[in-house]
Structure formats: C-alpha cells, structure tokens
C-alpha cells in the first residue's frame, strides 16, 4: 500500500478523485449508463430533471446523463490515443535527433520549428478540411499537430543526457546505439514526457471539444461534449442545463488534468513553484507580516 500512499501524497486526494472519477466513467461508462446515449425518444424532448432522466433529456429526447458519460468516454479515449501516438512518434524523432545530432537533428528541429510556427489547432483544422470530418481523422489530425511538442521536449532531454559521463562510458564499453537509446535514454525522456503529457491532456480535451463544436470532429450519433454544446446552443434560453452540463464536465476534466500535471511536476522538482503556489505563499507571508 506504500505506492497508494505515495500517489495520494504526490497527487493529492481532490485531484486523484477528479481524474479517477473520469477514468472510472470512461472505463465502465457502458455499464453505468442508464440509456443508450444515441437512443431518441421524441416524446421526451426537452424533458427536465426527473426520476426517469436524472439530468433531463435533450431536444431529440436523448438522456443527457447517458450522453455526458458517453462524452467522457469519447474525450478520454481521444486524449489517450493522441498522447500515445504523438508521444511515441515525437519521442522517437526527438531521441534520434538528440542522440545522433548532425543533419538528422537539423531536419527534425526544422520540422518542429514549422510545427510551432503554425498553431496546433490550425494544423488539425487543415487536416480535417482535406480528409473530411470524423473521429478517426480528428485523432490523426491532433496527433500530427502534437508531434513537434514531444519531439522537441525529448530531443532536449536526450541531448543533455548524451553528454553525461555514464553515456560516454557506455559508448567506450562498446554498447550499441540501440541499447543506449532504449535502455538508458528513452527511460530518462519518458519521465519528462509523462509529466508534460499529464498537464497537456487538458489542452487536448479542449481541442477535441473545439473541433467537434465546429462540426469537424466527432460526428452524430456519437456523443461528445463539444458537439452537445453546439447542438444545445439554440435552446440556451429554454433549457440552459443543456449547455451548462457539458460545459461543467469539460471544465472539471481540464481542471483535473491541469492539477495532475502540476502536482506531478512539483513532486519531481519541488523547487519549481507554480505561479498559483507562489501567490498563495506570498499571501500567507503578507498576512503573517501584517499580524
């Protein structure tokens, strides 16, 4: 149980509760969902909170709670897939560039420069514009847009590690580049990438919602929070809950991921204070002085 205590200490129970709740919903969503999220019952259209529909029903009589649960699944699966794809490709490129340097490093870094010069969402929009809107295309588009971030991050970590004496020793002892990369450099970079990815997940959840809001991501009948928001816009006066509920779900998920990223970063490097923590500490110090 030491690992559990360590996790609680590092992450903090509110963050853990928030993120694990969403993870639970994503994993067991199909079991706990009271209705099929795509099932329409036109006679229940715009029904408010009731025993039948705890969070009401939308304009086409679909159960809002079931759609929020399905939306959590869609978003989290999307976030994890993009992070896995972009993280793997980015780490691969960054590690090769950092280890071998030279022209390979130049090519990878110029690719990254190009990637950074165009906002990630624009890259995703262009991809979806060419290949058509769908959940798969959105995942691919976001993965492509996110690769430069992880490539540059990994390259920095690897380039710094390569000059360390223990890597030099391994070279002298005749270790193959593959062994050095996979046994010694990738594990170093992975830690950094995981820390960054935990904070980046919130941003990705927002990007998925943005694209679906614009009609370029998830397509009906699959439920997704951004799509729920745009479908509910015409009903904002009659039933504000249809806009507020997916908005709250998205906000909580983003807060959860941000807190998670921040806590992990702090645990790895306690001296690196976040702005929020710094201002909190300054306020306590000021009060003490005034007292």
């Amino acid at each position: 149980m030491t690992w559990l205590r360590t996790t609680f200490r590092v992450v903090g129970w509110p963050t853990l509760l928030l993120v694990s709740s969403f993870a639970f919903i994503a994993i067991f969503g199909s079991v706990i969902s009271p209705y099929d999220p795509a099932a329409q019952n036109l006679s229940h259209s715009m029904q408010s909170f009731s025993a039948e529909h705890w969070l009401g029903a939308d304009n086409l009589g679909r159960d809002t709670l079931s759609r929020l649960i399905a939306g959590a699944q869609t978003t989290l699966i999307g976030v994890v897939t993009v992070l896995l794809l972009a993280g793997t490709i980015g780490m691969m490129l960054g590690t090769l560039a950092g280890y071998f340097g030279g022209w390979l490093d130049e090519i990878v870094m110029r690719f990254c420069d190009f990637g950074f010069s165009v906002p990630s969402l624009f890259v995703a929009l262009a991809f979806v514009g060419v290949f058509g809107p769908s959940y798969t295309n959105m995942i691919l588009a976001l993965s492509i847009a996110w690769v430069p971030i992880y490539a540059r991050l990994t390259r920095g970590v690897v380039a710094a590690a390569v000059s360390q004496p223990y890597i030099e020793s391994l070279r002298v002892l005749g270790a193959s580049p593959a062994r050095i990369i996979f046994r010694h450099l990738v594990p170093v970079a992975l830690g950094q990438v995981l820390v960054y990815a935990s904070a980046d997940a919130g941003l990705l959840a927002l990007a998925i919602a943005n694209l679906s809001f614009l009609g370029l991501g998830v397509q009906p009948p699959q439920a997704e929070w951004g799509q729920m928001l745009v479908s509910a816009m015409p009903y904002i006066q009659e039933a504000p809950r249809l806009v507020i509920l997916p908005g709250i779900a998205l906000t909580l998920l983003v807060i959860g991921f941000n807190l998670l990223g921040e806590r992990i970063a702090l645990a790895k490097n306690p001296r690196a204070m976040s702005r929020r923590k710094l201002s909190l500490r300054r306020a306590i110090f000021k009060k003490e002085v005034e007292a």
Binding site: A38, Q40, L60, P133, G215, Q219, P220, P221
Partner: peptide, 23 residues
C-alpha cells in the same frame, strides 16, 4: 438540417441502414 439528419439517422438505423451525416 442537423437535428433533422439525426432523427432520420436514428430512424434508418432501426432497419439496418447506416446513415452518416456529411456536414
């Protein structure tokens, strides 16, 4: 047309017709 498409989509699905909405 979006809401209309979603109603048609659900209706067709009941008889084994896949309908995708192209926005």
């Amino acid at each position: 047309s979006r809401a209309l498409g979603e109603v048609l989509q659900a209706g067709f699905m009941e008889a084994g017709i896949g309908l995708s909405l192209r926005n």
